[in-house]
Simulated assay, not measured.
Amino acid sequence: MGITLDLRNARAADVHVGRSALAELMSVLHILAEPDHHPEAQRWTRQLGTTFDDSLANEMSALSPLWARLRCRLLFPLALPLDQTFEEELRHLEKLPLDEFVDLCAQGVLGFREAVPPARLLLDDKEAARCYVTQCERRSFRRGALAHDLMASPEDVRARLIDFLDRCGGAFFAAEWRAVHDRLEAAVVRFRTEVTRKGLAEVLAGLSPTAVVAGDGSHVRYDKLAIAEIGIGPRQLFLLPSVHVWPHLTIKDERSYPVVLQFAAPEVRAPEQLTLRQLHARLSVLASPGRMELCRHLLGEPITTSELAKRLGLDDTQVSRTLRQLREAGLIESEREGRYVYHRLATSTLLRLGQDVLATIMR
């Protein structure tokens, strides 16, 4: 499974790197909607929650289908230029033709890669609208309620959404955007330079540890649940660095619009992002009762191979083999002191393992 970017026809003029305040706000709202999926941000989200009044919190919940899972294409840049102000992005949303708004919003409310009837059919055919609302209700009550509102009055939903986003700006996001603005500007400058210096395939592959370059540099594949091949050139690609998107790598592929790839700015990525192979190796190593028993002995003070063998009633060769497996998985640390090599459990790695599992699944 995965999403592949086909770069055979990509030109420098097709690739644009920039910031989007609205897309960054959506990343923040995504974390607030699914805090259990972002344990690294729990303290920050608790502090942020104190800035919401009941009205803002209730509307955040009601509109959350737009950013809780699939992330609505409506809230990413739809056209050039990038780096518009937050207010300019809201005005563009306000002026978007109603058919376009409904097309993008309806897919976002459903929050799943299933076919959604075009806006004109939804707005003109009551049976098509009813079936769409039922489709959303099967996913969740909240999605069904928002779908019903969208079919009843799309202009009202648009006005609610813009008002909510504007209120978020006043309540907390304007300050947050000022705090991250310069960091994102540095990331934009860096990636513009790297696309020119290194080439597009190498830069895109560096955005995720799951990325694989194939076809002599003409294709880059990301490990995602969706399966798709997306051509770049003449279709445009928007690269949007983000402070809050990690551990996700978000790729949006609505056919009538530029492809969007939102990625974590380098300085906010985790120090170590595991590949699926590395994660599988760590979990497999710990699945053995014998290796788990050995880990218990490594938890205290550093210990030599021969001492471990003596405690476990095994020969040195067996213990050395097990230690090598643990070391290759990054679960033990070994250090020579004089004549002996001492081993200890990498407790910080083990403590991170649960978060690593979640982050790898979520990418």
Results as ranks from 00 to 15, higher is better:
residue 15 V to M: 01
residue 173 F to S: 04
residue 49 G to K: 14
residue 42 Q to H: 12
residue 324 R to K: 11
residue 192 R to G: 14
residue 211 A to R: 05
residue 320 S to N: 09
residue 152 A to D: 15
residue 357 V to T: 15
residue 162 I to Q: 10
residue 147 A to Y: 01
residue 240 L to K: 01
residue 220 V to H: 05
residue 67 W to R: 04
residue 271 P to C: 11
residue 286 L to M: 14
residue 312 L to M: 02
residue 235 R to E: 09
residue 191 F to Q: 08
residue 227 I to Y: 05
residue 75 L to N: 03
residue 113 R to W: 13
residue 32 L to V: 12
residue 184 L to M: 11
residue 103 D to W: 00
residue 305 T to W: 02
residue 331 L to P: 06
residue 236 Q to D: 13
residue 56 L to R: 04
residue 168 C to V: 03
residue 332 I to C: 08
residue 172 F to H: 04
residue 343 H to R: 11
residue 185 E to C: 12
residue 11 R to W: 10
residue 220 V to K: 04
residue 53 D to I: 08
residue 143 R to F: 00
residue 100 E to K: 13
residue 208 S to Q: 13
residue 271 P to E: 11
residue 273 Q to Y: 09
residue 188 V to K: 04
residue 101 F to K: 05
residue 263 F to R: 09
residue 40 E to I: 01
residue 27 S to A: 13
residue 300 G to H: 10
residue 348 S to A: 11
residue 52 F to A: 01
residue 202 E to P: 08
residue 121 L to R: 12
residue 281 A to T: 15
residue 4 T to Y: 05
residue 308 L to T: 04
residue 17 V to E: 02
residue 152 A to P: 12
residue 92 H to I: 09
residue 351 L to R: 15
residue 240 L to E: 00
residue 285 V to K: 07
residue 37 H to P: 03
residue 99 D to V: 08
residue 347 T to N: 00
residue 66 L to P: 05
residue 334 S to D: 08
residue 1 M to H: 11
residue 65 P to N: 07
residue 212 V to F: 04
residue 30 H to I: 09
residue 61 S to P: 02
residue 288 S to K: 04
residue 120 R to Q: 15
residue 72 C to A: 12
residue 224 K to D: 11
residue 291 R to S: 06
residue 281 A to Q: 15
residue 4 T to N: 05
